[in-house]
């Protein structure tokens, strides 16, 4: 039964990919891609990675909004396909070779694979955490996570730098063009539910699948929905409070990391007995910052609209 499910899922993934790549118009391609994202989330559950499944599903939705927004604009950018048949054949051959190589490697890879699962579990007690993925993200490889939020911030700064001259501190355009009544209804009904779920995800993240990325993405999605419905105006990007919110998450993370120099004596080490408290503070601050950054990235650069 499960083997059948795996087989069907594994087959559907490349099929959806093919559909998405070869769809006639951009919009269908994007919708195919979003469907692929949902299938991937299922695949992640089957692979025993519920944390990843949640992230995939949540981020997939935001990616969909982004791509759909660009799909309408992209038509005018389309360039005719170039290259000789020979070149195209070579490219196809190269891609096929890589795929075949990966398939051979997967088939020949050691099973059971070498694993850090035992090592990751061994220190959970000291960190007072129940979810090993959270332990990896916020203790063992916390530097990756810290720098990854910096990546998101850099992406946001990059997006902002694409504004027109003199407009960049103003509000971005509201997403989605025109709002209809059902969207307004949805934007009134869903956000309370979404926020509760987000807080729940964040809260259980220490011990069960969930955590800051998933929660932040959900909050960002709710905010975008409210903006789409026109219930609120997009914020001005130069606003001090908004900027403070964005910087707070990484700043708190860095501050706690640097405090580690003083107390246990190591960067990003948590003092004994305070590990869980420190991790929760970091997670809450990062959730707020990431939610704001993710939503602002989707909203795009300022257009100079000023709120009256």
């Amino acid at each position: 039964m499960n083997a059948t499910l795996d087989a069907v899922l594994a087959l559907m993934l490349p099929v959806m990919a093919l559909f998405s790549l070869n769809a006639r118009d951009e919009r269908s391609a994007v919708i195919g891609f979003m469907a692929l994202g949902l299938l991937l989330a299922l695949a992640w559950v089957r692979l025993g990675a519920v944390d990843v499944a949640l992230t995939e599903a949540a981020i997939g939705a935001l990616t969909g909004v982004l791509l759909l927004g660009a799909a309408s604009a992209a038509v005018s950018v389309a360039v005719p396909r170039t290259g000789s048949p020979l070149l195209r054949g070579l490219l196809a051959l190269a891609a096929a070779l890589v795929a075949a190589g990966v398939a051979v490697i997967v088939a020949g890879a050691p099973d059971p694979a070498p694993s850090l699962a035992a090592a990751a579990v061994a220190h959970l007690g000291a960190l007072e955490l129940g979810n090993p993925v959270t332990a990896v993200l916020l203790a063992y490889r916390a530097l990756d996570t810290l720098l990854e939020t910096v990546v998101v911030l850099l992406a946001l700064i990059g997006v902002w730098s694409l504004a027109g001259e003199g407009e960049w501190r103003g509000a971005p355009a509201a997403p989605g063009g025109t709002a209809s009544r059902p969207v307004v209804l949805l934007a009134r009904l869903l956000p309370p539910v979404g926020l509760v779920v987000a807080v729940h995800l964040l809260w259980v993240g220490a011990d069960a699948p969930g955590g800051k990325f998933q929660a932040a993405t959900l909050i960002a999605a709710m905010w975008l929905l409210v903006l789409m419905a026109g219930l609120r105006a997009p914020p001005e990007l130069g606003g001090a409070r908004l900027r403070g919110l964005i910087a707070a998450g990484p700043a708190v993370f860095i501050a706690i990391g640097l405090a580690g120099f003083l107390v246990p004596g190591q960067f990003l080490a948590y003092p004994e007995g305070w590990a869980k408290a420190a991790i929760i503070v970091i997670e809450v601050a990062l959730t707020a910052s990431l939610a704001a950054m993710l939503a602002l990235i989707v909203l795009g650069p300022g257009t100079g609209e000023r709120r009256t």
Binding site: S180, R181, P182, V183, L185, L186, L189, L190
Partner: peptide, 13 residues
């Protein structure tokens, strides 16, 4: 239910 109903409305519009 909610999502289906609202999506249906939007498509119908």
């Amino acid at each position: 239910l909610g999502a289906g109903g609202i999506a249906g409305q939007m498509i119908a519009q």
